[in-house]
């Protein structure tokens, strides 16, 4: 496993990490930002091997470590981009959006896929600033198809 570089100044600052994600996503509140961070990290915890999660945790603020704990022993080999988005969509307010399944404005539903992908990339972007390029590729190779592309292009 490639070693990650030494810690940079500010790497473990939770407020700074959240500010970056909030700026990336133009989120209106800290609560919304934390929701996005939690959902993306929990989805990553479902698919990454334990040693990679531990390595990632050393690069992030201690406040987010709780999201990188997986209760199951091994990642489910069938975990794919749909399931990944399932975790992220949970952080999206689905009311009042445009419902693409029926083609019109729906006050109680929205098709949240594009927003979930955008949120994932906002968090990925902040993560990648704390990870060496060679390790970014290692992580991308372990993520489900499509998710790896969102990660690398974030």
């Amino acid at each position: 496993m490639p070693q990650m570089g030494g810690q940079k100044e500010g790497t473990l600052d939770y407020g700074q990490f959240l500010s970056e994600v909030q700026a990336n996503g133009s989120f209106t509140s800290r609560e919304e930002t934390e929701g996005a961070v939690a959902s993306v990290l929990m989805a990553m915890a479902e698919v990454l091997p334990r040693e990679q999660l531990q390595a990632l945790a050393t690069r992030l603020p201690p406040e987010v470590m709780v999201f990188l704990r997986r209760s199951g022993s091994e990642p489910d080999p069938l975990f794919d981009s749909h399931l990944f988005l399932g975790w992220v969509v949970s952080s999206v307010d689905a009311t009042g959006g445009r419902d693409e399944t029926t083609g019109g404005l729906d006050m109680t539903a929205s098709y949240s896929g594009p927003e979930a992908i955008r949120r994932a990339q906002c968090v990925f972007s902040a993560l990648k600033k704390r990870i060496e390029p060679d390790h970014q590729q290692v992580l991308a190779d372990l993520l489900p198809e499509d998710v790896n592309g969102w990660f690398l292009n974030a």
Binding site: D80, H82, L83, G86, V88, S90, S112, G113
Partner: peptide, 8 residues
């Protein structure tokens, strides 16, 4: 919907 459990 994206993320629906039906995919699994």
């Amino acid at each position: 919907c994206a993320g629906c459990g039906d995919f699994a």
